[in-house]
């Protein structure tokens, strides 16, 4: 990376305003992250299919490409060529906008993830708050999808999604306060830098609350109530088809990737690992995929909760535990 003095000089030499240079660099990096995201989704979808198949004593995709590795490409081609079905009574703007919002909200979370020392698109001072707050805009996308579709099942699915995600937002945000207290910063790179000892050891309770509420945020089993096939058929994405549906689908996987990366940054030591420094991104990726594997493992093993149990767990169990965690952390820090 270039230092700010070098950038200043570069800007002066070519008569470009500094903000313009900053913006174009950020844009290039964002596009790079976007492309990596696309690659990540391909890997993740393949991984999920193979893992699910392995748990279910079957093979999974096998025929398109080497061991079915190009299956997703074939699927995307199919989705692109599909007819864009638009329900007659759907709200045109809300219906069209919803997938984009869900996708973008999931994507922007990745922009502040430090995958190595200095390897970050934008290292915000309030990175943690940003990463907790911005992806929550995705809820608006889900509500819009349910509302705009003019479908009762979709409406119920989106209401469930809203209720569930709003409830779990609170324990999730509270569970990371312990981490901020220890690291003394809300900057994600500073949090990673502070982890001589991983926070999972110092904050086991916070980690557990964070992991459970993250699964609930991601709408994955055992909390996949917004799109329970048995009850709501496909939930909020019921009326969507073709590429519009694909955006929900990709959004889900990118959100999984972002949430796993955040788990690694906050609790699992980020890029720290044995070996020279250039291995840092590798360690980060290995850890992230470990968390993703855990999420998939849980998904393909457990049944799902009922809606009232999900609410009970969020408000009556996780929220008090998160508060208790803050209390314990505070007391311990006072003593030490």
């Amino acid at each position: 990376m270039l230092s700010s003095a070098q950038l200043q000089e570069f800007a002066n030499n070519y008569g470009i305003p500094l903000w313009g240079l900053d913006a174009s660099i950020a844009l290039v990096l964002a596009v790079a992250v976007f492309c990596l995201c696309g690659l990540g989704v391909v890997v993740l979808v393949y991984m999920e299919r193979k893992i699910a198949a392995d748990f279910q004593i079957r093979y999974g995709p096998l025929h398109v490409g080497w061991h079915g590795s190009l299956q997703l490409v074939a699927d995307i081609l199919k989705l692109i060529t599909k007819e864009d079905v638009f329900p007659k009574k759907a709200d045109p703007w809300i219906f069209r906008l919803a997938p984009a919002i869900v996708f973008l909200a999931a994507f922007v979370g990745l922009l502040v993830m430090p995958i190595g020392p200095g390897l970050v698109v934008q290292d915000l001072n309030v990175g943690l708050i940003y990463v907790l707050a911005i992806p929550s805009i995705g809820i608006a996308g889900l509500i819009m999808a349910g509302f705009g579709s003019y479908n009762k099942y979709a409406m119920m699915g989106s209401l469930r999604a809203a209720a569930q995600m709003v409830s779990y937002e609170i324990p999730r945000a509270l569970s990371v306060i312990g981490v901020v207290m220890i690291a003394g910063s809300a900057k994600l790179s500073a949090i990673v830098g502070a982890q001589g000892i991983w926070h999972i050891i110092l904050q086991p309770l916070g980690f557990m609350v964070f992991l459970v509420s993250t699964l609930a945020e991601l709408n994955r089993t055992p909390f996949d109530l917004p799109d329970t096939e048995a009850e709501l058929v496909a939930g909020f994405s019921m009326e969507y088809s073709g590429m519009r549906f694909a955006f929900f689908f990709f959004g889900e996987y990118i959100a999984l990737m972002a949430a796993s990366a955040l788990t690694v940054v906050l609790f699992l030591g980020g890029w720290h690992g044995p070996g020279p420094e250039f291995l840092a991104p590798v360690w980060f990726l290995i850890k992230t995929f470990g968390v993703i594997f855990l999420a998939m493992w849980i998904r393909w093993t457990l049944p799902r909760f009922r809606i009232d149990q999900v609410m009970d767990l969020g408000w009556k169990v996780l929220l008090p535990l998160a508060l208790l965690n803050i209390l314990i952390t505070g007391i311990v820090m006072l003593i030490i």
């Binding site: 279910q56 079957r58 996949d224 799902r304």
Partner: peptide, 16 residues
């Protein structure tokens, strides 16, 4: 019963 509660993995074991 498993699929309706969201547990899709026992499906394959029973069907096998």
């Amino acid at each position: 019963a498993g699929v309706e509660t969201g547990a899709v993995t026992p499906y394959m074991y029973y069907f096998d």
